[in-house]
Write a protein that binds this DNA or RNA. Structure first.
Lengths: 206, 206
DNA sequence: GTCTATACCTAGATAGAC
DNA sequence: GTCTATCTAGGTATAGAC
């Protein structure tokens, strides 16, 4: 009679795998993809380098999994915000604010997702990630055009600009990093985003 | 009596060095930083790998020089366009158009300068490069505000957004690559940039 | 299943002949 | 000064003991 894994064994394995992914994510967040060697990740997870290969066929496979998990969370959050009630312009503003706020608060991860040097396989995931971000923004802009609150425009370009703008501000943080400065930065980013989409100037952003 | 290099010897050496830089630039443009090994660059220049070290102390030093030359040219071109006669809004539009056009026409180089995975030393140069681009845009936006044709805004953020937006469109080219599409893309990028800076809608971009 | 030890490969850099 | 040949370091992946 063939041996079968018990549920307990399966969940132990999965837990180990999840732990490895979580530790790898931390390492990448702290030192970037290029410095996240198999040895460094294994050390962080408290296992031997060789043991990594019990869970992933290659370092690349692990890196891709790490990227997909983190990117998926960010896309889900942004998607959720953009689907909340409100006018397209309000939702667009909140979406940009949430995107940027999360990036500022966890800049290591944001940098890893958006810009940090990485191997080609991760680069391909990154392209897909940015496309999904742009698609989310483009949908809201499109809604705004359809409902007449935004002028006609190439929604792909506006969405790409919003993604690129937040990324640019993030990668090379402007000015100081104190709390007040971050809040002002966010407000000004949102104002810029609304202008970019063609929303009429609002009294609170004179 | 000590030996001195003759002028002819000096210029021959400099010529060899320049040739090496030019070939390295080509290689980087074609295959990116990470694939531009010393061997590949030396082959391209028609010399042995070891001979590279007659001209540069390390691969990193060569890479930095390649980056600085190319980035310096781009900054000079953009600076020149932004200083030509015209209103701040006109100049801003032309600047974005020139930036994007050059990037589209030589996308390999633009990608290498703006986004391609690279070693840390090149990454540092890239940060500086992007800062210089942003400073140029920020100056024109500032002029526009001072002369009353643009609304008050954080010029650093607007400038960062313009840089990021063009980079984003560039790194993942939208749509087809035929001539007409490129021209439409450029027109729409410029329209987006002017909205982003808060320029009033013009009749030619309804 | 996990560890230790190691094989293997790539790529930067160096030494010595010519 | 340039080439050929080689050294070395760092990192992925594997083999075999436990």
């Amino acid at each position: 009679m063939a041996y079968r894994k018990t549920p307990a064994e399966i969940s132990r394995l999965e837990a180990a795998r999840e732990h490895l992914i979580a530790c790898a994510t931390s390492v990448v967040t702290e030192v970037g993809w290029s410095q996240a060697s198999v040895t460094a990740v294994a050390d962080s997870a408290g296992i031997a380098a060789g043991s990594v290969y019990q869970h992933f066929a290659s370092k690349t496979a692990l890196a891709v999994e790490v990227f997909r998990r983190a990117a998926g969370r960010e896309v889900d959050v942004l998607g959720g915000v953009l689907r909340e009630p409100g006018s397209p312009v309000e939702r667009l503003g909140r979406g940009v604010e949430v995107f940027a706020r999360r990036a500022l608060e966890n800049s290591g991860l944001a940098y890893a997702l958006l810009a940090a040097p990485a191997e080609p396989a991760v680069g391909a995931e990154r392209l897909d990630f940015r496309r999904r971000y742009r698609a989310l923004f483009a949908d809201v802009v499109h809604e705004g055009i359809a409902s007449g609150v935004l002028p006609a425009q190439n929604t792909e370009i506006t969405a790409a600009a919003l993604t690129g703008a937040v990324g640019e501000v993030l990668v090379d943080p402007l000015g100081s990093r104190d709390e007040g400065a971050n809040e002002r930065l966010l407000a000004e980013l949102v104002a810029m985003a609304l202008r970019c989409a063609g929303a009429p100037p609002s009294p609170q952003h004179p």
